[in-house]
């Protein structure tokens, strides 16, 4: 990263920068639609667009590894989990007006506040520094791995311990539930009552899976 030199002006953007901006707009739009749409599953699918857009942004910043991890974890797994959960609920085709909560204004406030914090942190951290996209890739697998396991080993390990704790917790929870109520796996009041085999057998597994995230 070099400081914004005279060669980089905001008025003469390069192709990559224009693409970055456009993809950013699309991502932002998809994110807004995600939280405003009245159709639950559509919200989940718009989330795919938003997450995919972020992956493309990573790609444009030459952080290839991060981009594919983003697709793998968020688009490939988290959204699938989300859709799986939605299918277990009564999510109808079409609008579900009762899905709106009275807390929307509070939620908006929290969202704006967290967005402001994030934007401020990023702006403050990078200010006017410029990523040189033409040189050696700064987000390649090797570079990411090196910085992760040299500079950021401690946070990495702390995170893995956290995930391990979540994993163990999920296992313990699913086990105790099994002992207390022998048939407590059936989720009451499910609209689309799934096949007992499918729902019951995947319940604890998906919980465990969540734990591993």
């Amino acid at each position: 990263m070099t400081l914004a030199a005279a060669s980089h002006g905001f008025l003469t953007p390069s192709g990559v920068e224009i693409a970055f901006l456009l993809v950013g707009l699309v991502t932002l739009g998809a994110a807004v639609v995600t939280v405003t749409t009245k159709q639950l599953v559509h919200a989940a699918l718009w989330l795919v667009v938003a997450l995919g857009g972020i992956a493309v942004e990573y790609l444009l910043l030459t952080a290839e590894f991060i981009a594919w991890v983003q697709v793998l974890i968020y688009v490939g797994s988290v959204v699938v989990l989300l859709l799986f959960g939605l299918m277990l609920t009564k999510a109808p085709i079409g609008r579900s007006p009762d899905a709106d909560s009275g807390n929307r204004w509070a939620a908006l406030l929290v969202a704006l506040a967290s967005a402001a914090v994030l934007v401020w942190v990023v702006v403050d951290a990078f200010r006017a520094s410029w990523i040189d996209l033409d040189g050696a890739a700064q987000g390649s697998t090797e570079v990411s791995g090196r910085s992760l396991f040299q500079h950021w080993v401690l946070p990495f390990e702390a995170l893995s311990v956290l995930l391990l704790a979540a994993l163990v917790g999920a296992i313990v929870l699913s086990r105790r539930g099994g002992e207390d109520t022998p048939d407590g796996r059936a989720v009451p009041g499910n609209g689309h009552a799934a096949a007992p085999g499918a729902a019951a057998s995947t319940g604890p597994d998906s919980a465990r899976r969540e734990g591993q995230r």
Binding site: F84, M87, A198, R209
Partner: peptide, 17 residues
């Protein structure tokens, strides 16, 4: 279709790891 979708999701979650 919905059951199929559910099973697909469950299977993907289990086998991707």
């Amino acid at each position: 279709s919905l059951l199929g979708g559910l099973r697909t999701a469950a299977q993907l979650l289990a086998y991707e790891l």
